[in-house]
Write a protein that binds this DNA or RNA. Structure first.
Lengths: 223, 223
DNA sequence: TGGCTGTATTTTGTATACGATAATTCTAAC
DNA sequence: GTTAGAATTATCGTATACAAAATACAGCCA
């Protein structure tokens, strides 16, 4: 474990700050799969008491980022290749749903926003700054979900994305994939403009499947 | 609120017992949408301290059954018709995914089990015991999910089903729908035996869409 | 030497105490 | 009679204390 630090000074309950802190630490890999989440230790590290730690752990547990064994404590959820495949199967289905809903509901204004996000993504790729690329990629997909106009869907996709973000940074380091990524994003926007549900579904599937292949390679490499 | 009681005397952390108790109370409707979940009151009612109550609320919150407003407390999640529509859209996509995966992976043994569950469901309908019908219906769908061999999918479908179970009892009181329910279940099993992915997908869609219509009528009736 | 047992330590599970904040109620002035 | 403001109350947010279980380790006996 690295030296954790409470980021958000915002006026939020501590449990939420702790939750976000631990969440980010897990996604960034500072807290590694299988690593124990000991309440007293985390409390000391973050300078809070056990109570908000415990509540944050309950939330992480429900998100699938931590597993708790009664009377034994919590640990960062482990991720096998099968797990990742399961996640990606679900993500494919829900991304397809999102983009098909978006086809029906997206407004002209939102289409314009999507094009802006796409440009930002392309510019980010020019910089080869992985963090920026990831950020603009997330923004692109967030725009997609927003256009789908299904709040519950967004809430469900988030934990799925998180699971994959654990491997995302590695995935985005592979520069040979960049042209394909841009092309795929373009195709999705084009499909939305044409409101061609069948086409966007195919494009999103391709997008997720490509990601699946890449992530699997990374996992294999780690083992 | 009714008189709540801790059911499971099993050897589980209190937070889990409280969680299941509150979950069931919400799904059965003993705790109504919008009803406040006050820690001290629940603690007194259930004969425990605030700590396990708080942790259970964090879990309910992550499941979408409760919403918490900082410095105000938690309340049972309200459910609008739009919310229900959102949930059912997602559920349709995931049920279709589940049954298509099951098409590929189901074993002969599991097919046999599905047929047994279907018989149990038919017998339950004869009794007109709504509780038993709901139970055997859940068992049928559980069998489907198990055959899909995607643990994560099951974990995601559960909260979705829960959201709908809040209206399920009302839905199952309508006896005129019984023959259609049986027919749809039969079709799903038939499709699985034939391993016809396209067919089962259509049948599951029909199944969920019918449920959607019924549940919407119930919600409208409640308003 | 190897396995078992009992004790010490760590860690979680639960309860409670205290402080802060938001909601409520009551009073007083217009 | 209505409204503004202060006092009160209810409730949450956080920390701490104590109990129980699990783990680790040392010593003992075969």
């Amino acid at each position: 474990m690295e030296h954790l630090e409470l980021n958000a000074n915002a006026y939020l309950p501590l449990r939420d700050v702790v939750f976000h802190t631990l969440q980010e630490a897990i996604l960034k890999g500072d807290l590694k799969p299988g690593e124990r989440l000991m309440e007293l230790q985390l409390a000391a590290e973050l300078g809070v008491s056990r109570t908000p730690i415990r509540e944050a752990i309950r939330m992480l547990q429900q998100e699938g980022l931590a597993v708790t064994i009664p009377r034994r404590g919590a640990e960062v959820a482990r991720m096998t290749e099968k797990d990742m495949q399961d996640v990606l199967q679900i993500r494919e289905a829900l991304e397809v749903l999102a983009v098909q809903l978006a086809c029906d509901k997206i407004t002209q204004e939102q289409i314009g926003q999507m094009e802006e996000k796409l440009s930002a993504f392309e510019e980010a790729i020019q910089t080869k700054d992985v963090r920026l690329i990831a950020q603009t990629d997330i923004a692109f997909h967030d725009g997609l979900y927003a256009a789908a106009d299904n709040q519950r869907l967004v809430k469900m996709l988030n934990p799925l994305r998180e699971q994959i973000y654990r491997y995302r940074v590695e995935y985005l380091k592979d520069e040979t994939g960049y042209p394909r990524l841009i092309e795929e994003h373009w195709q999705i926007v084009r499909g939305l403009k044409d409101r061609d549900k069948e086409y966007v579904a195919q494009m999103v599937k391709k997008h997720v499947v490509n990601q699946e292949k890449a992530v699997k390679n990374i996992i294999r490499g780690q083992e």
